[in-house]
Design a protein around this nucleic acid. Sequence first.
DNA 1: GTGTCAGTCATACGTTCGTTTGATTCAAAC
DNA 2: GTTTGAATCAAACGAACGTATGACTGACAC
Lengths: 212, 212
Amino acid sequence: MGPPDTRTQILDAAERLFAEHGYRGASIRAITDLAGANLAAVGYHFGSKAELMAAVVRRVVEPINAAQCAGLDRLLARTPDPSVAELVEAFAGPMFDGMTAGDEGGARTSRLIVTILSDPAEEVRSWTGAAEATFRDRYLAAFERALPGLSPGELWFRMRGILAVTAVDRVDVHNRPTPDCVSPAAEGEAARRWAITFLAAAMSAPPTGAGR
Amino acid sequence: MGPPDTRTQILDAAERLFAEHGYRGASIRAITDLAGANLAAVGYHFGSKAELMAAVVRRVVEPINAAQCAGLDRLLARTPDPSVAELVEAFAGPMFDGMTAGDEGGARTSRLIVTILSDPAEEVRSWTGAAEATFRDRYLAAFERALPGLSPGELWFRMRGILAVTAVDRVDVHNRPTPDCVSPAAEGEAARRWAITFLAAAMSAPPTGAGR
DNA sequence: GTGTCAGTCATACGTTCGTTTGATTCAAAC
DNA sequence: GTTTGAATCAAACGAACGTATGACTGACAC
């Protein structure tokens, strides 16, 4: 409730500008201006622009990862063999939570995640906490049991498909949305249910035959 | 067979470096160095860096769009009501074609497309030819007929899901691929079939109920 | 020979970038 | 009152950027 400290205001401004203009496109001058802070504050509080980006990403990704992890725990505590739909909901659902406050229906956070995923800069790629790899493997194992007969390669492909849809599908990839359609980003709850439906069906598809 | 002219070599180098480092991350100095051309050649042949990017994108996207358009024509010439799987194949298939020569299994071109889709720079977004909007609406109408009962908003969401999966799913979104899995980007043909399976099932999902 | 012109070249300009520095502020500690 | 240390500030640094300029090259036309 107290006045937000400079560090937090810089994080907020950076999260917004990194999402809007990408890592390279957001200068620390623009960030500190938006935050109402001095140019040197980034160096003082974070060390460098790259470390600021890492802090921003950590703040966004960690709660999502924690929720994904907790969701799987909750699921496995109930049954050793969750359904595909349950696994999809537990994995993809958290990406839609906490994306509504101050965020245009999640579009901004989604764009930030896309920026992270697609930015080829080496410094941006070293964002993930150590926890990510372990719980991801746990999901992989759970999906593997729910989808017998699926090759490891195809399962891996499909898990990345979940990431792709949840992240990309909420930003305006087309510059001109069809006018007679409701803007998907405007309705966070609808997007969530659409995504779960879409992905549960996709994950449940029978294995691709080896033949042509 | 003749010696490639400077213009083409710059286009090749730019396509590669834009894909690897993004629009802002690839300097025209690095591009002209890789192309073995002079720094001023970009200005001479293309006018500016933005126009170079536009030329690169046009060269990559136009054959894909043409193939998507032709695929729909071929489909509609056979039957007025193609199946969802046929429509998915016609729409997503061309994104996997012509991505094998000189391109690491399509990963590089995919990354370039992701760069285009996700880069928030205004100048990058004005890439699409006028043809794109029209044939996209034709696909929209065809999917609408094949999927009665789907709201326009959800249909729109699903079509963007196709783009997300075909583009993102072939780049290494995770920095550490699970070691015991075949790298998906390495096998272009497998990725193509996996994507079609994945997306056909996803598109064919029943409409999301209005209820909670 | 002279003129023309597309292409290439070295070089420089002005801007913006990330980072660093050293002074300054100010509340708490003693 | 003095000291301390975290925090903020204006200012400057060198590097890299996109772009512009003017000279040079060589083939072709007349």
